[in-house]
Design a protein around this nucleic acid. Structure first.
Lengths: 343, 343
DNA sequence: CATGCTTCTGTGAGCGTTCACAGTAGAGAA
DNA sequence: TTCTCTACTGTGAACGCTCACAGAAGCATG
């Protein structure tokens, strides 16, 4: 592309101007800018005054040219984007990451790898060093882009445990298993014993973990596992409706359902309503996510809140640490039971 | 912040490496890279081969340092962000802009100006020339950040007509007035004569325009304007519910309602349902936006689709043109009536 | 007085590009 | 021939910064 400089703007002040204004050398200004060790209080003050007076802002391009880093990170979305952009959790995540990065003065580049072509371009862009690291929102399947980035040694932090990327990729995730256990424990504490589950997709760690938590908690409570009480879904509302239908058919005596997402739970509520079951009197329903869907319609959903604000903050923290040379890390954050009307 | 280079990555090839590989000079490689005028076919081919062989990617920092442009643009959100991030239209817009820019190989920086502090930091960042231009999603009120950017001569394209920024700011907007007229025309064509309206906030151009379109179309059809048929809202679902209640109280004989947003229309549907009015038999309802809310519940909403994909594409086109030196421009895009069940 | 150490400061080099300019070769015209 | 013009190519300088190094000043120690 070609971009010519527009007329209106005049040359911004350089480090040289600041140095002259402060009566010191470029080196001293640079030292004040970065860390400020080995500079006298008098010089530091003079430089800061000069910066204020001139309105100096460091030229990141010049800095990056010599340091070899860009002081920016990418936010990479490798899945079909509709799904994520419509997910409120994703929005919270994106917003949280942007703000956390802003606090460190690190710009965030939004990268959408939809088509094969985009994927290639973005991979080159990243491996060329135009960003220092990548916040990755992938899911399901092993992701070729992520794999390539990992192989190229690009600092990478995934949201949720990535599949098939080896253990050397950092990730931040909610404690799906523990969250599921907490919800099941809650349902059991209400006296329910025929607790069903609509799972998420079982090719995702989240889906697997939530099911595992369900089983564990039942086992611990001494409630026998009954596979007729478990049906699988894909997190969509429609799959919640269908799942509830199967569940009612397979186990008509179900008196509680743990649903692996709020969106599916909406579908479950609809099906239960159609079937004439009252919620929570006949069937208690517990969701997962605490998304806006949880309070959108019907009885307000009792659910498990994923700490998206903390997740984004941790992703940024881990990524910056890794860019700073630290080793990859996995962070699991606790979830929280939100009691509403459905259970 | 401090970021030290991580071990894994080795030095990427430079233009020098390519030049050596191709047996030409840096200048020739540079010419091939940018436009390719005045370079012999043989040289061009050799350079391209060398680029492929070495895996060369231009160092944007070095380029930016000398050209003075960053070849990147900012996507600036100056309003309380929750509102926008939960708006599906906003998501389409963000996605569309990112993709349109990607096609030009221009990275998009996401900038959220929530707090006063962020606002100041972002303003400095932009005016320092770290982005070549800004895609602005503001709304309502005159925006101090936008005003400052305009004054600094930063290329700027707003989404929707901005208020109080003078005429020298580019913007891209849907044709609110014409869209409103089309909907009202549709309602009239169904034989309805007591057509009410729930307006959007009247301190926004969109709100004003939709109301104006409503009035114009009524006038053209020779239907007398009745102010009891008009109540105002703020685009939220709750204000739709409240608005419909007022409407029913003021004008019980209302037989159609044009609602200025789908979200409000959902509220209107709920109120009508509670009041025992059937939709569309007793009262026809027309929305605006064609957001997912339009098909979320109740009768599927007849609505006006705003061409968000085209809006984002046009915003990018206008911005890049302006960065290239062209004058600011206003683009108004046509809307489209989407017929569903509610009217 | 020399020596060393610490704290502070200035200077030159260089990061990887683009740009302006100078220069070359070949073709065609005078 | 000689001159001009076009098509192409190479070269040095510059962009604004950081980094390594050299050096100065102050102070304590030998």
């Amino acid at each position: 592309m070609t971009m010519s400089n527009t007329g209106g703007r005049r040359r911004p002040p350089t480090i040289h101007d600041v140095a002259r204004e402060a009566g010191v050398s470029r080196g001293t200004v640079s030292r004040v800018l970065n860390g400020g060790h080995y500079v006298s209080p008098a010089a530091e003050e003079a430089v800061n005054a000069a910066i204020r007076k001139t309105g100096y802002v460091v030229n990141r391009h010049a800095r990056s040219l010599i340091t070899g880093r860009s002081d920016s990170v990418g936010f990479l979305l490798t899945e079909p984007q509709e799904r994520f952009f419509e997910d409120p959790n994703f929005n919270v995540l994106l917003r949280g990451c942007t703000q956390a990065l802003a606090a460190h003065d690190v710009p965030l580049l939004l990268m959408l790898a939809g088509t094969k072509d985009e994927r290639r371009r973005i991979t080159r862009y990243i491996t060329a060093g135009h960003v220092d690291g990548v916040l990755l929102v992938s899911s399901h399947s092993g992701d070729p882009v992520a794999e390539e980035l990992r192989a190229a040694g690009v600092p990478l932090v995934a949201c949720g445990k990535p599949i098939g990327l080896g253990s050397k990729v950092s990730y931040v995730a909610a404690d799906d298993r523990d969250g599921a256990r907490e919800m099941v424990r809650h349902l059991l504490s209400l006296g329910r014993r025929r607790v069903g589950m609509v799972t998420g997709p079982l090719d995702t760690p989240g889906g697997v973990e939530r099911l595992a938590g369900y089983k564990e908690e039942l086992a611990e409570a001494g409630v026998a596992f009954d596979e007729r009480l478990v049906v699988s879904g894909d997190y969509s509302r429609a799959s919640g409706e269908a799942g509830a239908e199967r569940l009612l058919a397979q186990a008509p005596d179900v008196d509680a359902v743990f649903v692996a997402s709020d969106l599916m739970a909406q579908g479950v509520l609809a099906t239960l309503q159609r079937a004439g079951r009252r919620v929570p009197e006949d069937v208690a329903v517990g969701g997962f996510d605490d998304s806006p869907a949880a309070v959108a319609a019907g009885p307000q959903l009792t659910t498990i809140r994923q700490p998206w604000d903390r997740i984004s903050a941790e992703m940024v923290r881990v990524l910056l640490a890794q860019i700073g040379g630290e080793d990859p890390a996995a962070v699991i954050l606790p979830t929280e039971l939100v009691r509403r009307d459905s259970a």
